[in-house]
Design a protein around this nucleic acid. Structure first.
Lengths: 250, 250
DNA sequence: CCATTTATATCGCCC
DNA sequence: GGGCGATGTAAATGG
């Protein structure tokens, strides 16, 4: 069977089950009352409570409270997870280096532990990303402005990368920055930096921020700096072959 | 008992267990072979494989593959999770609005399902954040530069917030931007934006970026724009009362 | 390995 | 609720 469960193990039985799971590369899920301590980029402490703990064979460790999308504490893959008994409690310790961090979980009561010998060869397929937006713009520059020609994609500059370097109908160079989501002031900053850099060699250069939307504050910042905003909400997702619905409608 | 398990339920038994868990506000963990579809800000599809599914009473839904820190698919809290039977399979559907998104998981084989009636009243306590760095600087401005006086914290400007507005020994205004981590080009952008804005009313204004470190590229950008970099690695974490180690050393 | 950029970013704050 | 900035951001990508 792919999943095996031990109900309410004592610390010794828990540590034995956890060690066996780590050795065999299984995914471990634990329901327990525990306290958690984090030391690393910051320091943190979580007092006793009921949580779901998950340890994966790649070193991933997650502590989930009963609410919230993000784990309250975690360790990304690449480190190690160990199970030990200490002062009568089972303890799970997840560690890594670079940066040096550790999450230590003291389990005061283990309600149950599940070992899952999971096999998963599938990879996630996604469409609608910023990379696809770039492809769309490269193929359809006239959607941004009549007569616009793309000269270069991902052009490197002294201070960073420009999404597109283009030329308008009059032959004036145009620096284009593309965002898949609503434009922020940081995006405005980025574009301004590239334009000012290019202006050192050609002060006729124009700057263009392309995004599905932008706040008034961002639009004002662009206007005040003679930069263009182009609203591009749809970029032919269907045409790019968005994954067809594979599951029956609910 | 806080955790209850059903081994290898058929679709009907699974849906019944899931509905009971959702009704009672329990955390549900499922080991299953399943396929997953996401529709929302992008579209995605994940073919059949073994995964750990977690549904929380606040509407959080997670799909975890056997490796990796982040769930391959998820829904944040605030939405709803439903369990249904469809074409002989159990199906979990997580939905929300604003933005309108859905994760649909078709369970081809359920290895087991655990219901966890978790009680957790604790909140995570953290120290070493950027907010604490601000407090430290406000109390110790001389660490940045001899004679520096903080005039205002989080000063609002037309284009955004300045971390500190200060005055140096000569009475020249100084705009200070603080980062807890290594400074990036975006942080340089931010500072430059504030300084240029302030320069409209007083062109003597100075700009200062405070961070534990910065890449050469960032330092060069700062130099080229007559902005200062102040390296501030330690900011009295201990003095601010970092949480004492609560757990025995491992 | 370092630096940069993206993300279904999420989260929290304040208007 | 929108706008804006921080995050133990993590992860991918390129040098």
């Amino acid at each position: 069977m792919a999943a095996q469960r031990v109900e309410a193990p004592d610390p010794e039985a828990f540590v034995e089950a956890a060690k066996a799971a780590f050795r065999d590369g299984a995914v471990l899920s634990v329901q327990a009352r525990c306290e958690v301590e984090y030391e690393g980029r910051t320091n943190g402490y979580l007092d006793e409570g009921d949580r779901l703990l998950v340890a994966k064979p790649d070193g991933t460790f997650l502590v989930h409270q009963p609410t919230g999308h993000k784990p309250v504490n975690w360790m990304p893959g690449g480190g190690t997870v160990e199970a030990r008994e200490s002062e009568g409690d089972a303890v799970l310790l997840a560690r890594r280096t670079n940066p040096s961090e550790r999450v230590e979980t003291r389990l005061h009561e283990v309600y149950g532990v599940t070992r899952f010998d999971a096999e998963d060869g599938a990879t996630y397929e996604e469409s609608g990303t910023e990379a696809e937006m770039h492809e769309y713009i490269e193929a359809n520059p006239e959607e941004l402005e009549a007569g616009l020609r793309i000269v270069e994609h991902e052009r490197e500059t002294k201070y960073g990368f420009v999404d597109f370097y283009a030329v308008d109908d009059d032959g004036t160079p145009v620096v284009v920055e593309v965002k898949r989501i609503q434009a922020t002031l940081n995006h405005f900053d980025q574009l301004k930096r590239y334009v000012e850099l290019y202006a050192e060699s050609n002060d006729e250069v124009r700057g263009m921020l392309v995004a599905p939307s932008a706040s008034e504050r961002v639009k004002r910042a662009l206007r005040d700096n003679d930069l263009d905003f182009v609203e591009l909400a749809e970029f032919g997702l269907d045409a790019k072959g968005a994954t067809e619905a594979k599951l029956t409608d609910f």
